[in-house]
C-alpha cells in the first residue's frame, strides 16, 4: 500500500464514520429530546405512576389545547380545558374524538408540551396519544388521559400547556416500516 492509498483509506474510513454518525443522529436526537425535553415532545410510552406524597403546597395549572390538522374530518375536545393540580397528584382528563366524515378514518394525536422543560416532569400513565385511533363515520369516542406531574417540577413552572394536534394517519404502516428500516428500529 502506498502512502497515498493509506491516507485515502483513512479518509474514507472517516467519511464512513460520519455517514454512520449522520444516520445515528436521528435516533440520537430522539433520545436526547427524551432526556432533556429539548423539543417539548412528551414520552410516547406509558410510564408507571409514582406513588408518594402529594405536594399540597403548590398548585400548577395544566391547560389542554386541541387542534385538528388538515385533511381529517375529526374534532377533538377536552372535557376540561384547564385543571389545577398538585405536583405528585395523579389526574384524569377525558377527551372526546368525533368523526364528522362520511367514511371511517384513522388519526393520531401528536402531543407537545410547553414549557419544554416541563415535558420531563409530565408522566403520562395512560394516553390516547400512545397509539392511533380509528373512527367509523359519525363515531364518537371518549378516551382518558391520566397524568401526574412529578414533584421535582421546577419551582418557576406554574402553567403547563399540553397541546394535541390531530393528524390523519393513513400511510402509517409504510411510514413506520421505512423509519424502522432507516433508523435500525429506532424512532
Amino acid at each position: 500500500m502506498t502512502p497515498v492509498q493509506r491516507t485515502v483509506t483513512k479518509t474514507l474510513f472517516a467519511l464512513m464514520m460520519m455517514v454512520g454518525f449522520t444516520i445515528a443522529l436521528v435516533p440520537l436526537y430522539d433520545v436526547f429530546c427524551n432526556i432533556t425535553g429539548l423539543n417539548g415532545k412528551s414520552a410516547s410510552q406509558p410510564r408507571a405512576i409514582v406513588s408518594g406524597e402529594v405536594d399540597e403546597s403548590r398548585y400548577v395549572t395544566v391547560q389542554f389545547i386541541t387542534r385538528t390538522g388538515s385533511g381529517l374530518p375529526w374534532r377533538l375536545t377536552a372535557q376540561d380545558r384547564q385543571v389545577r393540580v398538585h405536583p405528585g397528584q395523579a389526574y384524569e382528563v377525558r377527551f372526546a374524538f368525533v368523526n364528522h366524515g362520511k367514511t371511517a378514518s384513522r388519526g393520531r394525536a401528536v402531543p407537545s408540551v410547553s414549557p419544554s422543560e416541563a415535558s420531563l416532569h409530565l408522566r403520562k400513565i395512560t394516553c390516547f396519544c400512545f397509539q392511533e385511533q380509528r373512527l367509523e363515520a359519525g363515531e364518537r369516542l371518549e378516551l382518558p388521559l391520566m397524568f401526574q406531574l412529578s414533584r421535582d417540577l421546577p419551582e418557576n413552572v406554574h402553567t403547563v400547556t399540553l397541546a394535541y394536534t390531530l393528524y390523519p394517519a393513513a400511510e402509517e404502516q409504510l411510514t413506520s416500516n421505512v423509519i424502522a428500516l432507516t433508523q435500525g428500529g429506532g424512532a
Binding site: T68, G69, S70, P73
Partner: peptide
Amino acid sequence: VNGVSGSAMAA
C-alpha cells in the same frame, strides 16, 4: 371544512 393533508389547503 377539513382541509387537505400535506397541502396549503387548511381546515
